[in-house]
Design a protein around this nucleic acid. Structure first.
Lengths: 350, 350
DNA sequence: TCATTTACTTTGAACGATCAAATCATGCCC
DNA sequence: GGGCATGATTTGATCGTTCAAAGTAAATGA
């Protein structure tokens, strides 16, 4: 109840008109310095806050950013989105935006939610996660010229997949992991990843592969990458059996994995594996489970990624024309994007 | 752009007035059946959606529920809020509400955010998490008659701590864990918890204590509970050392822990402990790390808890008077609340 | 001196919905 | 057939803000 201060109340108390108060906040340059200061003082004193609903009615902008929240995923990697979300909320608040949540069972349902939200709360932008090949969500949004940023690269290079994005360089992460193992003296380094086709998985595998290939061409002996590679569905179980198989047939002394789930399984296999030196294992995502298990893992800078998303959006929303021309590619250059390097969190396992 | 359908468009297309369209949606009973059907059809055909901003302007209700999101916490238990949040978003959507996020460094900052949000986006209600003794947030909200629900009991019984809440019965969880161990033949069951004073921690300890006490009075030999109890700060490390200490001095054959973090530490201590039968360990929260480690753990029904929160709020918001009288306790009964029983997820560790 | 510019400030109008009150039919009863 | 309750629908007014246009006063120029 304490809050019922309208712009008119401020205007009256300051002895000016509504519009002058509005201008003090939105276009300070047109208000005389003295007036401006006085109005600001009154605003402060009365604790005035612009009513967003009324503002939105007039301007059409809600200062809301919508993002989908998924149920923890496989569980292990659930907290990744959690941390991203925290960063997003925090950065958004700094820029004057708030984060609105929604859920959706699949991409089609998500588009239905887009329609619903755009009709009711009218968020200024969406943040998409888990983008993939032939993502119908991105094309739907692009067709309508609706602002959005994807956390994750567009894995297709089709022209209709051009949109702003922020991502973490997975290949660079697995490369760092592999180099770390090389530096520790390992030479036979295996990789447990996911079946080809997922952009994220292929990316992470590539970092490992290119590092070993580079080593091979340096030292002469290239090594048989295929023998050191296993591709399985994500999960602790499958990580364990893949690792067991790999250890038996290819005798690696270290393993890089595409996820912490796989790595945790691999860690179990490595521990029950008899051999001289213990087999080193590195995971990906630096999840709490990795902390708990003492698993060395590739850490994603999620707060930075979230901040980059908000920055890209804020910039897009300032120049409304930037995105509003779906057909006509305004600039021949690539869409705005940010690719962040991950870091390696070193623990006992490697 | 496809969305610019206003209530006037619908009215024109249906050959009725604005208000009749509004009534079909908000007070269907006053509209003639035939008209209602026709209007609904037109609404469907045009894809009309009520503009929330305009609605809020008139009604003062935003259909937004605000909740604070924390950075993953200690990491391990981070995903608990994650799952709760998902449930909240989903249930809220069913009831026609959306979830708005915010962050805050501490309780004082959170109150500042309350003021900010109430002045701008005007959420209809707040969901508080991690309530504690002498929580200034609850009293602040109560004083102003602002609707909210706490996920977590008011741990104080002061009259100014009376508010609706939803919680999971921690004592019942540790009781179930203890009974499970008793059924497996264990008799010396230790407990690793947090220092007294935190409501949650005391509650979880109580479930273990009362179960063993009940057993004692049945069998005659009560046993020395204090010797089997350790109270330490949360964390894997401290769990490990507490467990090591407990195993050495009190020789328990099983351990119940107040969190998965503690339990993971205890599990490590238990594994490196030589003795006949392996020491059983049970954790609390059923986090992904527990899944990964094969840790038996007490599982909180977070989706149900979230649904209960939304239900309580929705009910409160229907009768605006229920909460709006801060001083005058409208009914002498306790505030509305829901206490949910957790369940035990059994894995290898016990 | 009077028109013209410059620098601020104020005045209606509008955004899209709902509330409250007014209007318009109908049917019923005496 | 007139009076009247009842049901169904319509008509202004309003929520708080910003846009666009209009107003005012002082400063400038011829």
């Amino acid at each position: 109840m304490a809050d019922k201060v309208t712009i008119t109340d401020v205007a009256r108390a300051a002895g000016v008109s509504r519009q002058t108060v509005s201008n003090t906040l939105n276009s300070p340059e047109v208000v005389r310095e003295e007036t401006r200061r006085h109005v600001l003082e009154v605003i402060e004193r009365l604790g005035y806050r612009a009513n967003q609903a009324a503002r939105q009615m007039r301007t059409g902008r809600s200062r809301l950013i919508a993002i989908r929240i998924d149920p923890g995923g496989d569980g292990i990697s659930g907290s990744v989105l959690d941390r991203f979300l925290h960063g997003l909320t925090e950065t958004a608040a700094h820029e004057g935006y708030r984060v609105l949540l929604y859920t959706a069972a699949d991409d089609r349902a998500e588009i239905a939610t887009f329609e619903d939200l755009l009709g009711s709360y009218k968020p200024d932008a969406f943040v998409l996660t888990a983008t993939h090949h032939d993502d119908i969500r991105t094309s739907w949004l692009l067709e309508r010229g609706l602002p959005f940023v994807a956390f994750g690269r567009p894995w297709s290079h089709l022209p209709d997949a051009r949109h702003p994005w922020v991502d973490v360089d997975g290949a660079s992460g697995t490369e760092a992991a592999t180099r770390h193992l090389l530096a520790a003296g390992h030479r036979r380094i295996g990789f447990i990843g996911w079946p080809s086709g997922s952009g994220v998985g292929d990316d992470r595998r590539a970092g490992w592969a290119r590092t070993l290939t580079a080593l091979g061409s340096e030292t002469g002996g290239a090594g048989d990458l295929d023998a050191l590679l296993r591709s399985v569905e994500d999960g602790i179980e499958s990580g364990q059996s893949a690792a067991r198989d790999l250890l038996r047939t290819a005798a690696p002394t270290a393993l890089v994995c595409a996820s912490d789930s796989l790595a945790l399984g691999a860690l179990q296999a490595a521990r029950s594996h008899e051999g001289g030196r213990p087999v080193a294992v590195i995971g990906f995502d630096d999840t709490p489970a990795a902390t708990a298990a003492g698993l060395t893992s590739v850490h994603q800078p999620l707060a930075e990624a979230a901040a980059a998303c908000v920055d890209l959006l804020a910039r897009t929303l300032e120049n409304p024309d930037a995105m509003r021309s779906p057909g006509a590619e305004s600039s021949p250059s690539e869409q705005a994007h940010v690719l962040l390097p991950p870091s390696l969190t070193i623990r006992q396992s490697a």
